[in-house]
């Protein structure tokens, strides 16, 4: 395990020195600031009390969380997209892989380091949105930790896909594939959302099936939808908002996503162990 922690330490130090941490945290702060200002302005313009006041503020909060989730997914893919393919192309990996390490330890070390970066990013970005929402609008999102953990799991899926693909393909190709996989999830989610609002039952069923297949192929968006479902107060779950759904994703998708991550890492270990360096 020593090797895993040394690689994780090296990866974190690299993220800090390359100002990856600084840039992501800086963008997060700017994002939270903008959200807080918007929420403040909207909050002051609403005269109503109760649900009439909470609904638009919660809607804004969820919109901000949606953007935070997309930013997290993008950051996860970008963090990992170059980590193996770039080091293989430059030859850096040769000095690491010739050390008395299993190649799986190199991948595990990088994965752990990026998980820490992503968790920090979610904590700051989504956590910042929550804090701003509470401080400015008095909104407290239910099941906050569950929501954040589901977002982290979605980002972990993306990170693991990026690492697995990066063991075989070049940096740019890895990026294209990783975002393509996210695109499947994204489109599938929207097909399901829009389809369920259709008047015809066969159309609704078809849309749900397409959405489920897309979610199985790429369980990133479904985890977001599950997170947002959990973070909506029960009374608001059936209201027509872009974030509510009559058909909430199955909680089994969490287990599926966990298995998906394990399979992606296993694929990465196997591919990387066999790859000529």
């Amino acid at each position: 395990m020593d090797g895993v922690f040394t690689i994780a330490h090296l990866t974190l130090l690299e993220a800090r020195r390359r100002r990856i941490l600084l840039a992501s945290m800086g963008c997060s702060l700017a994002f939270i600031l903008l959200f807080a200002v918007a929420l403040f302005v909207v909050s002051r313009s609403i005269a109503a009390d109760g649900l009439g006041r909470r609904l638009p503020l919660l809607g804004l909060t969820l919109a901000a969380l949606y953007v935070a989730n997309v930013l997290t997914i993008i950051t996860s893919a970008l963090l990992a997209v170059d980590t193996l393919s770039g080091e293989i192309a430059s030859g850096v990996i040769q000095t690491l892989a010739s050390k008395p390490l299993r190649r799986a330890e190199i991948i595990a070390g990088k994965w752990i380091a990026f998980e820490i970066v992503i968790a920090l990013y979610i904590g700051l970005t989504a956590g910042g949105v929550m804090v701003a929402s509470w401080a400015v609008g008095g909104i407290i999102v239910p099941n906050l930790m569950q929501g954040l953990l589901l977002m982290l799991l979605g980002a972990t899926v993306m990170l693991s896909v990026s690492i697995a693909v990066g063991t075989r393909l070049t940096t740019i190709t890895t990026g294209i594939v990783a975002f393509g996989v996210y695109g499947i999830a994204f489109l599938g989610g929207w097909i399901e959302q829009i389809g369920t609002a259709m008047p015809s039952e066969p159309a609704r069923l078809a849309a749900r099936n397409i959405g489920t297949i897309a979610s199985l192929l790429s369980p990133t968006d479904v985890l977001w939808r599950l997170a947002v479902f959990r973070m909506l107060p029960p009374a608001m779950r059936s209201l027509p908002t872009p974030f509510s759904s009559n058909y909430p994703p199955s909680a089994a998708m969490v287990a599926w996503a966990g298995g998906y991550v394990v399979v992606m890492l296993a694929v990465a270990f196997r591919q990387f162990s066999r790859r000529p360096l």
Partner: peptide, 20 residues
């Protein structure tokens, strides 16, 4: 791996993380 612990290697065109 035990053998590799006793081996040193300087690759051709040595590259490493240049932020160190």
């Amino acid at each position: 791996r035990q053998a590799r612990a006793r081996v040193g290697f300087l690759p051709e065109h040595f590259r490493f993380h240049d932020c160190l």
